[in-house]
């Protein structure tokens, strides 16, 4: 099978697994909704646009770490070994990244919808804010997939995941927060082109290094 077909099959497999045992997906969606609700009960009302934006990204950060941690840890060693005998490591990491991007987009849309429902806030440029959330989910998915692969190799994967990924995701988060704040304030779109460029550049770097490094990671 060529790479493209392998990726297609692996993504189908991920989605089928997810749909068969809905608890993981439902669990993570419930996680987002309850986090937003906890924040609502704690804050009641957010006065400034800056806090609104920062709170949203913090919720997204924790939800995405939780959602993506399981992408490698969840699968048993024997099953992973089986995948490695039938597919190339590149196909495995690409399919995981793509699947996680889908998952993150779904997650972030639900989070954004529920968040703006409870915390009402005027938005300057809603379409551009949506773009920032989309870019954010794609970037989170690409960084966290590789980190979860690294963390799954250690004995206490779940705890390690946060330590390993938070410092690496901060540069992205800083740029994302700035970009989405520009969109909230309804600034001219050309103001944010720099930020979009940096986000895309980081994504390209992360995906390329993941592709280069994953073959070394899975061999046990």
């Amino acid at each position: 099978m060529d790479l493209f077909n392998q990726i297609k099959f692996l993504i189908r497999k991920e989605i089928m697994l997810e749909l068969r045992s809905k608890y993981a997906l439902n669990g993570i969606l419930l996680y987002v909704v309850s986090t937003v609700f906890v924040c609502y009960l704690a804050f009641r009302q957010v006065s400034s646009a800056q806090t609104w934006n920062a709170l949203f990204w913090i919720i997204m950060l924790f939800a995405s770490v939780n959602a993506i941690t399981k992408s490698f840890i969840q699968e048993s060693r024997a099953r992973q070994l089986y995948y490695y005998t039938i597919a190339s490591p590149k196909a495995i990491i690409i399919s995981k990244i793509i699947y996680n991007i889908f998952l993150m987009i779904l997650l972030s849309m639900i989070a954004l919808g529920f968040y703006s429902l409870v915390f009402n806030n005027p938005m300057g440029d809603p379409m551009f804010y949506l773009l920032s959330v989309l870019l954010g989910s794609i970037s989170f998915a690409s960084i966290f997939t590789m980190i979860s692969g690294i963390a799954s190799k250690a004995s206490n994967g779940g705890g390690l995941m946060a330590i390993l990924s938070f410092p690496l995701v901060i540069p992205l988060l800083v740029v994302l927060i700035k970009f989405s704040k520009n969109a909230m304030d309804g600034l001219d779109r050309s103001v944010s082109y720099d930020e979009i460029g940096v986000i895309l550049a980081i994504n390209v770097i992360v995906v390329t290094t993941s592709l280069l490094l994953f073959p070394y990671l899975w061999r046990d």
Binding site: M146, I147, I150, K153, A154, L164, L168, P171, I202, I205, V206, T209, S210, L212, L213, Y216, L217
Partner: peptide
């Protein structure tokens, strides 16, 4: 594994 993390972290 730590080499993989080191190489992954450096460009970022």
């Amino acid at each position: 594994i730590s080499s993989v993390y080191n190489i992954f972290a450096f460009p970022i």
